[in-house]
Computed example of a mutant assay.
Amino acid sequence: MAPFSLLAAGVSLVAKSFSLWSCTNSLARCTSVLPVKCFTSQASGPPKRPVNGFVRFALQQQPIMARQNPEVKFVDIIKKIAVQWRTMSPEQKRPFEEAFQLAKEKFKVDFERYQAQLTPAEIQQKSLEKKERMAKRKAIRKKRELTNLGKPKRPRSPANIYMSEHFEEARGDNTQIKMKSLMEDWKNMFSHQKQVYTQLAQDDKIRYKNEMKSWEDHMLEIGREDLIREGTLSARKKTAQAAAPKKAKAKKATAKGMSTATRKATKSSSTVRTTTKR
């Protein structure tokens, strides 16, 4: 099952879209509470994809549990609903799953009808929009993965450090106005006043460089070479290539030394045997 935070966000969005629905305690009345048409039709634009059986169940139970437990947070309610869903029997889940299957079939028909009325230019535009959405989702997933892997934060600029330190006292009623006023103040500052923030930014660069080196070494250890910067990989390859001839030369010298020592030992042994015979 998806993480509860994502699950809660998904249920919240769907719940807002269907806030006018009434809810009942009966599982058997699911199809009447969550009609198929509401999930798959729109007045204009493409039809919406239907939600699965669990989300239908959560939409039905969330208002009920919220009324029964007004002090409980929304996320905690969703967690309770998820536990309840896992303990339900297949017979109890069947109305929600059947409603989902019916909605899927209707969505397929509605989507084919919608696609048929599009012009070639609109189809191309939709394709480009889909690629952009997929690229955005991929970037978000990658950013989340890097955060979970502990990738160091990029160094801050002098202006960024100044604005973060003076944000609370900045002029303005909202974030945008405050940031604009801080940027104006930064531009009007003298060079000697900016020097302290420039030094802090230099220190932050050193911090970032050291932390990135340790992080990339760890990524190599766990087999995540794909996350290492291209410049770092190139530098490592050049260093390895430069060190290879030296290692080969040292190995050859060692082998030569061992060979010489072996010959001397053999010659000495032969001399001893000759002396003994005499």
Score class of each variant (00 low, 15 high):
Thr198Phe: 09
Gln199Asn: 03
Gln199Val: 12
Gln199Pro: 00
Leu200Thr: 03
Leu200Pro: 00
Ala201Met: 07
Gln202Met: 06
Asp203Phe: 04
Asp203Thr: 04
Lys205Phe: 09
Lys205Leu: 09
Ile206Asp: 01
Ile206Ala: 02
Arg207Leu: 07
Arg207Cys: 05
Tyr208Glu: 13
Tyr208Gln: 08
Asn210Glu: 04
Asn210Leu: 01
Glu211Thr: 07
Met212Cys: 10
Met212Val: 08
Ser214Arg: 02
Glu216Gly: 01
Glu216Ile: 10
Asp217Glu: 13
His218Val: 04
Met219Ser: 09
Leu220Pro: 00
Leu220Lys: 14
Leu220Arg: 14
Glu221Val: 15
Gly223Met: 15
Gly223Ile: 07
Arg224Phe: 15
Glu225Trp: 00
Asp226Gln: 02
Arg229Phe: 10
Arg229Lys: 13
Gly231Arg: 11
Gly231Asn: 12
Thr232Asp: 03
Leu233Arg: 04
Ser234Tyr: 03
Ala235Asn: 09
Ala235Arg: 13
Ala235Met: 05
Arg236His: 12
Arg236Thr: 03
Thr239Gly: 03
Gln241Ala: 10
Ala243Tyr: 12
Ala243Val: 00
Ala243Lys: 15
Ala243Cys: 09
Ala243Phe: 09
Lys246Glu: 12
Lys246Trp: 04
Ala248Pro: 08
Lys249Asp: 05
Lys249Val: 08
Ala250Asp: 07
Lys252Met: 13
Lys252Gly: 11
Ala253Leu: 15
Ala255Leu: 14
Ala255Asp: 06
Lys256Thr: 09
Gly257Gln: 13
Gly257Phe: 12
